[in-house]
Design a protein around this nucleic acid. Structure first.
Lengths: 217, 217
DNA sequence: ACTCGGTGAGTGAGTGGTTACTTACCAAAT
DNA sequence: ATTTGGTAAGTAACCACTCACTCACCGAGT
């Protein structure tokens, strides 16, 4: 029996392969950084030979740039859709998208990629970073300015407030996901708490463990 | 026994050399990470041959561990002195030391070392990290609990509040010193503002540029 | 229905350069 | 004379990247 195109082909198309290389490389770069990842490892993770990686990307650095560019352009797309929702005054969609973007941008893999690229000072990373964080600033700018116009947050400097908020969220993720400090709440819960804490003027839930030690462990 | 040197010797003592290697290596590791730094570079920066580096430290990793251990033990020392000042109720010394420790721990070189060691997941970095952050938690724990007992910050969860504050400070440093986003105030000013902002319940200076755009640049 | 040649997917076995680390030896200080 | 600070010149392993080559697939000609 000579089966024809019945099951999956033995060879992938160029686009499929390119995507699988990017996926493999992204997780490795996020885990070990650019310098810490070898092209041999990338090939092994993608299940192909090292030579094929270089058929798709001229250099290791070009592959890295492609990954960051892809992530950045997806963020850009989300921002555009979100902006149009805001203009249509569709607050349900806007809030949902903004929430998704915040969760995505504070996702451990994204954070590790972001931090590594920033620390290792790749030229490409500037754009990536600016894109990732403009999201937050724009989102919070809108929210805070709206609330201020409603009479809330008297005497609050919006830029400082936005930065403070981002600081809380990012730092929580750093602590919990990257540095491995155990969280005393679920991530979702904590981000929500931070939002409340920040936006309502540092009034946290009264249910908090007041006598808790501040040093974890 | 005590060798008194009239003129500068052509050769350094073991301890002097060891210190100079650590200094050179620390700045390189902070700038490029463990993987990104070569032992040749370290030797060149310290102004000696590569072989001599290995006379003082058996492996590159051991040198790295020594750097983190040194930083951590200095922090520990500061914490001890500070604790004794607190017990003596010497608030002037306590506040001064605590301020110094916060400034030191948010210093760009320390932050880069910390972030790199955490991202690259060296076993040694755990201790280093725990030490660096216990500083904040303990300092803030004391402050916040004191203020709560005075009737301030009703319904505030101290752990969350401490984390939020650290988030603000660390994120500001990340933005400004590592990611290169221009600060709209001086670093010292901003840290102080964060302290005020946090401790007084998000009431920032009314002098703030209220109509400022939130996106820098 | 079958062959055959063109094309792109895919690889094993390198290449030169770099890395962490070593060896064998030297010179200054005591 | 011995110890200690110091080096030039290695070495084996590993790195990003290349080369020469094979194989799978498809469609045109018969």
């Amino acid at each position: 029996m000579t089966p024809r195109r019945r099951t999956k082909s033995l060879r992938s198309s160029g686009q499929e392969r390119q995507a699988s290389i990017i996926t493999a490389a992204a997780s490795l770069f996020a885990a070990k950084g650019f310098q810490g990842t070898t092209t041999r490892e990338i090939a092994k993770t993608a299940g192909i030979s090292e030579a094929l990686v270089f058929k798709h990307f001229p250099t290791k650095r070009a592959l890295y740039a492609a990954i960051l560019a892809e992530k950045a352009s997806f963020s850009e797309l989300l921002a555009t859709v979100e902006e149009s929702a805001r203009k249509r005054d569709d607050m349900r969609v806007f809030t949902m998208l903004a929430g998704y973007r915040i969760r995505r941008a504070t996702d451990p893999t994204m954070l590790r990629l972001l931090l590594f690229s920033a620390l290792e000072r790749h030229e490409i990373s500037d754009m990536f970073f600016q894109n990732q964080h403009r999201i937050f600033y724009d989102y919070l700018a809108g929210y805070i300015e709206r609330r201020i116009s409603e009479g809330a947050f008297r005497n609050v400097d919006p830029l400082l407030a936005a930065r403070a908020f981002i600081g809380m969220v990012v730092h929580h993720r750093l602590l919990h996901e990257i540095f491995g400090v155990p969280a005393h709440r679920s991530p979702e819960d904590t981000v929500d708490t931070y939002v409340t804490l920040f936006l309502e003027g540092l009034r946290a839930q009264p249910s908090g463990a007041k006598k808790q030690r501040l040093t974890p462990g």
